[in-house]
Write a protein that binds this DNA or RNA. Structure first.
Lengths: 140, 140
DNA sequence: TGTAAAATTGTAATGATTACAAAATTGAAG
DNA sequence: CTTCAATTTTGTAATCATTACAATTTTACA
């Protein structure tokens, strides 16, 4: 399967040894925009890896995050969600349906040039809270 | 004290009845840019209100957030920090010194016009992670 | 095949936050 | 000034996502 090789390559690109769990977690996160939390990832992968433990999922997510292969989304309190799509985008949370959507960003950076030159930016998280298109239509 | 009246007015503006705890919490959050967590707010206010309980601080912070008078900052995992400054700004977290700084934003919105017209934006959180000016200098 | 390093697992602990019910305070009506 | 219901505050116990830790399994290479 060609997809598998892509995932392995991506892991290697981020200096992560491609074990089964790491491959499956990254594969899942790259295949969806649903931004699952650790529990959801665990439940999903348990079907494919019956010996899987929650701790392994947490360990793997922490490793992938530290190496930069995925991103933590902390828009909901009490839980961390994960994002495997690497291109820059904003996260929109609808307060009506509680869904999380990806949205395009207008600028390459939100910061002003003067600040950009002073600090070193390593990561960026843009969270928007509001009402989504669908729910706005329903409300009319 | 004129400042007290300002705090009371602000509470009323957000439709919050001005009790002692609410006044003190908002006063504290409006006076600092240190973005304290609930525990820090509790410890600080305990000096002024010896009967204060942690639960009251949590209740108050939840109320102020719901009414829109303050904002939750979820840039650190495992804890929520709070921000009483209402003008739009980004939060910059330095991975070296772990401090949290406020930074100016370049644009009025990070979203593209087409998306802005489709959804209703109620709140925005912009988190930048990196290395701050001070730590960059130290590292040289 | 043997062996050390790395990966995975299961259980117990952590710690911020919340649920809940009791106690205290407030504010308006008599 | 009282009364009493509504609101606010408090303390304790529970919740629940995440982590610590030590044991077990797997991997990779001599």
């Amino acid at each position: 399967m060609q997809n598998l090789q892509k995932i392995k390559d991506k892991l290697q690109q981020y200096k992560i040894k491609p074990s089964l769990i790491r491959i499956k977690v990254l594969e899942y996160l790259n295949s969806t925009r649903e931004h699952p939390n650790a529990e959801k990832i665990y439940k999903k992968l348990l079907k494919e890896i019956p010996t899987l433990s929650r701790t392994s999922v947490y360990n793997t997510l922490k490793l992938l995050t530290q190496k930069g292969a995925i991103k933590e989304i902390m828009i909901e309190e009490g839980e961390i969600r994960y994002d495997g799509i690497n291109e820059r985008h904003a996260h929109f949370k609808c307060v009506k349906c509680n869904n999380l959507y990806d949205l395009k960003l207008k600028c390459k950076s939100c910061l002003e040039e003067t600040d950009l030159n002073k600090v070193k930016v390593m990561d960026e998280h843009i969270y928007i809270v509001g009402i989504c298109k669908k729910c706005l239509k329903k409300g009319e």
